[in-house]
Simulated assay, not measured.
Amino acid sequence: MVTIKDIAKATGCSPSTVSRVIADNSRISEKTKQKVRAAMRELGYHPNLTARNLVARSTKTIAVIMPSSADTSLQNPFFSEVLRGIGSHLHSRQFSLLLASGATETEKFKEVERLVLGKYVDGIILLYSRLNDPILSFLKEQEFPFVMVGKPLQYTDDIVHVDNDNIMAGKDITEYLISQGHKRITFIGGATDLVVTIDREKGFETALTEAGLPVTEDEVIYTEFLKSGGREAVEKILKMKTKPDAVVVSDDLISIGVISTLEEHGLSVPGDISLASFNNIYFSEIIHPSLTTVDIRIYELGVESSKAVIKLCTDQKLDTKRIIIPHSIVYRNSVRAVE
């Protein structure tokens, strides 16, 4: 059986240095870490992480809290992509990922309470920002290390969060539709208690106001971040007395439902209604028509949130509590210019 002493002998390091490399101690140089890890692979050494974690009083596990049940959330490719980013960095730092959700808000709260009070995890990543969230209040009360993907409306200066500037993103994509000659634009957002919906809608309204276009309640529709949500949104659009000539959709998956349902009613995108969306998920380019969408760099949101939560768990200094991932518009075929 290969031991730490064998690794030390093979590398010319002391056993204590090898132990620090296994613990990923920041005081050990990257060159030494690479040399020791190479020897561990070559000799087939596998550290007893459970024993080490018990000594360090650490689980080396991060819990990721979904906004709804896993069955519902994982229908949206946003979550699989952000989890890919989170998981890649956690793996590189030898942390494990634990996925937590609940069929109801009560179930989800009890699961978080169990994880925190039972010390099953070192930190938590919240994959959403919601108004009046009891989980957020609980984590703050417990002073437990956590990071939020999204902007908190409360305690903004106290909570570490990774986000896009969704107000600006909403404004940018709406201004693009206006620049193409569109004047009757409808916003299709997610749940009204999600901060991402609030911010993107605010940007949408700002763009209309600055362009001298009217802003009315009829021009805003709320639905679920699912393909079925797009179907429900179109049913509301079809009942409007004056139908829009363009829509801003807060999620690419909703857009799929919008396009297919419009086609069922003999309407086309962009022939009858232009469509601009958000997220730039993997199928945005291959569907017909390909989506003009805001690329929010989902993978980077995941990576940066995992970097931040590990720093909190290991008492490292964070330069800022607001980490903004830049966005950009990807121009494709779902928007037409109005003559």
Score class of each variant (00 low, 15 high):
15 P>M: 12
289 P>A: 10
222 Y>S: 14
61 T>S: 10
62 I>H: 00
337 A>G: 13
257 G>M: 01
188 I>S: 03
132 N>L: 09
164 N>Y: 06
305 S>E: 10
54 L>K: 04
157 D>Y: 10
72 T>V: 11
319 D>V: 04
269 V>E: 07
90 L>A: 09
159 I>L: 10
113 E>Q: 15
70 A>K: 03
130 R>G: 00
173 I>H: 02
167 I>W: 00
58 S>W: 00
152 P>M: 09
313 C>T: 12
136 L>H: 06
335 V>F: 03
282 Y>N: 12
230 G>P: 01
124 I>D: 03
335 V>W: 03
23 A>P: 02
176 Y>W: 13
43 L>M: 14
255 S>M: 09
173 I>C: 02
162 V>T: 13
218 D>C: 01
92 S>E: 15
197 T>R: 02
121 V>Y: 04
75 Q>I: 11
267 L>V: 09
307 K>M: 07
329 I>D: 08
332 R>A: 12
13 C>Q: 12
301 L>C: 05
94 Q>N: 14
103 A>V: 11
337 A>D: 11
201 E>K: 13
101 S>I: 05
263 E>Q: 13
94 Q>W: 04
201 E>H: 07
327 H>K: 11
214 P>C: 00
43 L>A: 08
239 K>Q: 15
314 T>Q: 12
19 S>I: 06
258 V>A: 06
293 T>C: 10
154 Q>E: 15
66 M>C: 06
126 L>W: 10
57 R>M: 14
109 F>L: 13
248 V>M: 14
233 A>G: 12
74 L>E: 03
223 T>P: 05
213 L>F: 02
294 V>T: 12
194 L>V: 09
313 C>M: 09
94 Q>K: 11
256 I>C: 07
49 L>D: 07
89 H>V: 14
295 D>P: 02
117 L>R: 14
181 G>P: 02
21 V>D: 04
304 E>H: 05
111 E>L: 05
252 D>G: 08
328 S>C: 02
285 E>V: 07
224 E>V: 00
50 T>W: 00
208 L>R: 01
220 V>E: 06
299 Y>R: 09
157 D>T: 14
226 L>S: 15
272 D>E: 13
178 I>Q: 05
120 Y>T: 08
253 L>A: 09
82 V>D: 08
33 K>S: 13
98 L>S: 12
103 A>T: 11
277 S>M: 06
104 T>D: 10
234 V>L: 05
11 T>G: 03
71 D>S: 13
282 Y>D: 15
278 F>P: 05
273 I>E: 10
93 R>I: 04
329 I>V: 13
293 T>Q: 12
148 M>E: 14
191 A>P: 05
12 G>Q: 12
41 R>H: 10
23 A>F: 00
250 S>K: 00
37 R>S: 03
142 Q>F: 03
113 E>W: 07
